[in-house]
């Protein structure tokens, strides 16, 4: 009897757990990014693989060493640094020098993530901070893109977004845009591949539809009004720039988005509005990164507003209590 007693595990209920783990979720995100990686390799060639692998290795290394220096437990096993590395690489042009990407990785992992306590504690999306640092430090390098399928030499010809902004229709066909035959960052160009990743994440229940659909939907509605009902214009706006990549993979980052459904919708609508405003009125051609970062910062307030009241809380007395 006492022998049995020593061997039994006694713990609080529940005694069953789902099999989902943090690293499993991150692995799913990585798998969801693979179609885009493949598409990017086809479109931009071997530079894609060079930049992606350097970025991933740097992020993991920064995560490992920064946590070691700060005497915190090792967390590279959760695979989140790999996701950040991939996403940052996806956010730079194929012609971006390797060393600049490493700088971006440093800001993403060390400054934006580990300085705030590591996974689950950062208040802004690390990969986007990396991208913004690169955008403000190397604006010309971040703003010129090699021509798809042709060469790795950056050309300064206008991207679809720039053309759209000046009121022209891009030279690329809509179908070409859908499959990624346009100037742009590594991972953002092939809408088709990104949507495959989106469906995979939905099927695996890693994310819900709320953020991506609301985000893209808001942009579509605003652009429909701005374009005076021109659906072609709306489709170009949706596929141009980094909207799909941002809406599916960056805005949905767990840590920096609200947990409640209502919160998610408010947050994503905010992202969509700011993105559209920057695209229409701003100085920059693209506003996805800034809009997500701004909404990231607002998440605590959105949560405060949108978190549902506990089951059965009467509406009236709650208001009275708040007063």
């Amino acid at each position: 009897m006492s022998e049995l007693q020593q061997k039994l595990t006694v713990s609080a209920s529940p005694h069953f757990r789902s099999r989902q783990t943090t690293s499993g979720i991150m692995l799913d995100v990585i798998v969801a990014l693979v179609p885009s990686l493949v598409a990017s390799y086809i479109i931009f060639g071997v530079r894609t693989l060079v930049l992606s692998s350097v970025s991933v290795i740097s992020c993991v290394a920064f995560e490992y060493f920064s946590r070691r220096i700060m005497k915190r437990h090792n967390t590279i096993g959760d695979l989140s640094a790999i996701v950040t590395g991939l996403l940052l690489a996806f956010n730079v042009p194929a012609s971006m020098p390797v060393w600049t990407v490493i700088i971006g990785d440093f800001f993403a992992i060390v400054i934006a993530k580990q300085f705030f306590g590591g996974i689950g504690q950062n208040f802004v999306n690390p990969a986007l901070i990396g991208r913004i640092v690169l955008m403000s430090s190397f604006p010309s390098k971040m703003g010129s893109f090699p021509e798809p399928l042709v060469s790795t030499v950056p050309i300064t010809s206008a991207t679809p977004l720039v053309l759209l902004k000046s009121g022209e229709m891009p030279a690329e066909s809509l179908l070409g845009m859908f499959f990624g035959l346009r100037g742009g960052c590594l991972g953002e160009v092939c809408t088709a591949a990104l949507l495959i990743g989106f469906v995979y994440l939905l099927v695996r229940r890693v994310i819900s539809w709320h953020i991506p659909v609301t985000y893209m939907g808001t942009v579509a509605v605003i652009m429909l009004i701005a374009g005076k009902g021109d659906f072609e214009y709306v489709l170009y706006e949706l596929m141009a720039g980094g909207l799909v990549l941002g809406a599916v993979f960056m805005a949905t980052d767990y840590t920096t988005s609200p947990v409640s459904k209502r919160g998610k919708i408010i947050y994503a609508a905010g992202c969509g509005i700011i993105t559209s405003l920057i695209r229409i009125f701003g100085n920059l051609p693209e506003g996805v990164s800034f809009s997500i970062i701004i909404m990231n910062i607002l998440v605590p307030h959105i949560e405060h507003m949108a978190t549902p009241k506990p089951f059965g809380t009467p509406k009236k007395s709650k208001e009275a209590e708040d007063k």
Binding site: H15, S18, R19, T21, S23, G120, P310
Partner: peptide, 25 residues
């Protein structure tokens, strides 16, 4: 199902809230 997961840091995925029948976070 029984196998106990190693406890790792909360990533605020919101699955606890999603599954809570009482709507708590």
């Amino acid at each position: 199902a029984l196998a106990v997961k190693k406890e790792t840091d909360c990533i605020r995925c919101g699955k606890c809230h999603e599954s809570c029948p009482m709507g708590l976070v």
